[in-house]
């Protein structure tokens, strides 16, 4: 158990505390200024890794949801919930950093032409609905199964939202702004990768800490039941 705990908590704790400040340092001290956007482009090293991390967390939540439907054990339900919870936290950060970038680049807080941002808006509404669904059902098998199925629908919704936004956009916004692209200088790319690793470590940390809290709460509840003589 201790080795496992180090892997899921201590390692990501150390990594995120090293890598995230390192990203800041690299972004401001090492990478050059972007020719078009200047200083405001620096947010790219945070905004995009946060967005990707958010997808990873939603994916983790969906995989655990599928595992729950297969195995039907509470642990998978808890993992799925915690994954989606941290995905939503990162998703909220995307919706905060996105408009900051948009304001600096285009002078408006919200740009309906930014594909990534629009998809996140859809996903944010969707995953908020996940929490509403979960908390309107009584704790039990039914709630866990319904949450798992809804989480799995996200697997369909994410690519469908991307496609839909793209199809609608070719028409509404002929010029599409793409962040980075293939022609990134090496210093940009490396900083981006370090930023991504930092955010992913932070995600693993958040998930494992929340899971540990949930497990402890479940264990306390179970002990209370044993004390009441229910032991089931």
């Amino acid at each position: 158990m201790p080795a496992n705990r180090h892997l899921t908590t201590t390692v990501p704790l150390v990594l995120s505390f090293l890598l995230i400040p390192l990203t800041i340092a690299m972004a401001f001290l090492w990478t050059g200024e972007d020719a078009d956007q200047g200083l405001s482009q620096k947010i790219f090293y945070f905004h995009v890794p946060i967005a990707l991390t958010s997808y990873v967390a939603f994916g983790f939540g969906a995989v655990c949801a599928a595992m729950y439907l297969w195995k039907r054990t509470e642990a998978w339900d808890m993992r799925s919930y915690v994954g989606i919870h941290s995905g939503t936290i990162f998703g909220t950060l995307v919706l905060i950093t996105g408009p900051i970038w948009a304001k600096a680049s285009w002078g408006v807080w919200w740009n309906w032409g930014d594909r990534q941002l629009n998809v996140f808006l859809i996903l944010f509404l969707y995953y908020c609905a996940y929490f509403m669904l979960r908390f309107s059902l009584d704790d039990g098998e039914r709630r866990r199964a319904a949450s798992a199925i809804f989480a799995l629908l996200g697997i369909g919704l994410i690519p469908m939202s991307f496609l839909a936004v793209r199809i609608a956009q070719t028409l509404i916004h002929p010029t599409v702004f793409t962040a980075g692209g293939a022609s990134m200088p090496n210093s940009f790319l490396l900083t981006f990768v370090v930023g991504l690793a930092g955010m992913l470590s932070l995600m693993v940390l958040l998930i494992s800490v929340e899971l540990r809290g949930k497990r402890t709460a479940a264990r306390v509840l179970q002990l209370q039941r044993v004390q009441r003589g229910e032991d089931a």
Binding site: D138, D139, G140, R225, E230, A232
Partner: peptide, 14 residues
């Protein structure tokens, strides 16, 4: 066989 609804144990080790 046990069945729990929320905090209520409707059937215990039958």
């Amino acid at each position: 066989c046990s069945k729990r609804f929320g905090d209520r144990l409707a059937l215990r080790k039958a």
